[in-house]
Nucleic acid binder design. Sequence first.
DNA 1: ATGGCTGGTAGAACCAGA
Length: 264
Amino acid sequence: MSDTLKIASWNINSVRFRIEIVERFLREEAPDILCLQETKTINDTFPAAAFRQLGYTHQILHGQPMHHGVAIVSKIPMREDDRLDWQANGEARHVGVRLENGLRLENVYVPAGGDVPDRNLNPKFGQKLDFLARMIDWSENLSVPTLLVGDFNIAPLECDVWSHKQLLDVVSHTPIEVETLGRMQAAHDWVDLGRHFVPAPERLYTWWSYRAKDWAASDRGRRLDHMWASKDVARQAVDHRIHEACRSWLKPSDHIPIVTEFRF
DNA sequence: ATGGCTGGTAGAACCAGA
């Protein structure tokens, strides 16, 4: 017996403004579950009906006014496990659910961290590091097979950015962030599914700035979005894809969706 | 040539993203 499960993750940068491309993605890719970050809406105005019409009748929403916000929509049953505040400031950046097969699915939106990579000059950078420190503690204490997905806002490897040298001082690729994310990975022996299926140094980006005149031509991308799996869960993963074409759709997000398929 | 863009909300000479 084999059961397939397809899970997608996408920083959508306003789910209301981009509901048309979300619908297109769901029709074309048809994941069982979609984890969204930066929904930028309170739960009352989340476009629940649009997802319901496409079969995503199970919805766990964790929104807030204006910024941030995460959600998980699913064709299969799930129940909410927790919504953790790893930044300790009340922002909606995490929600975790449990599937009927026992898998724990955690959807996270790590803070961007502001402009200056120095916690003494830029409190947001300190908050990002503190957020990661709490995720390290959480990772150390995990006992359930878990899939952690979302926008980590860190591109860890040299080949995860268009220019390692030019981004060393740019928040998302600084040595302290990379080192901290490395400790988080070690804390649970997380398997980085992106690099499991697309080994370094192959090009693999999930984000391109809106400011480039032609994002594809300049190709100044970064791999900020990730799926990390417990060892047991990673063994069941059979495919992993990114959807770069979505970056060229009408009114695109600056992030693209990533998808992993499992066979249990 | 990274900040040149983008959305939300208010009604900005804003904030936040990364």
